[in-house]
Amino acid sequence: MKEMSRIVKTVTNFVYGFIIIFGFYIIAHGHLTPGGGFQGGAVVGSAFALLLISYGSLNSKKFLKKDILSLFEGFGLILFIVLGFSGLGITFFYNFLANSGGWFGNAAVIGVNPGNMNTGGVIPLMNIAVGLEVLSAFGVIVLTMASAAEFTKKKENS
């Protein structure tokens, strides 16, 4: 896939990092504001799609590695299921960190409040795990389909 014009590329350079930090913000604040693992992961995955479209599939290889992404995908899922397993002393998916006082363990103020990052128990951790999985999943899908589009289309010269 060919790269796009220089203007688009320059804007992409700025917007790329911004989208990623915004996606991370959505992931990390999943238990306070709208968003969470899926949404933030989808946003970061879209950032990868943006990089791919503006730099072309050849040039974007420098920044995006499919192998690493699929590694992170498996890693995120395993983190997620391990979080599920670690509640197994009581039940699967038991929120064992909530209201325990440690990391993410503060009790939330009941009622309307500005939100405290340090609450939610395992929910922020699960958000991170799912976000990791979703962003790399979308990255892999986009990268694979971009190379597949070159593979399946008819050869135009012949």
């Binding site: 959505i26 709208p34 968003g35 946003v43 799609a49 943006l50």
Partner: peptide, 17 residues
């Protein structure tokens, strides 16, 4: 407002595609 930010950023990607 977060939704609007996401929207503004990602509609651009769709246009580019």
């Amino acid at each position: 407002i977060d939704v609007a930010i996401v929207y503004a950023l990602l509609s651009y990607i769709g246009t580019l595609y």
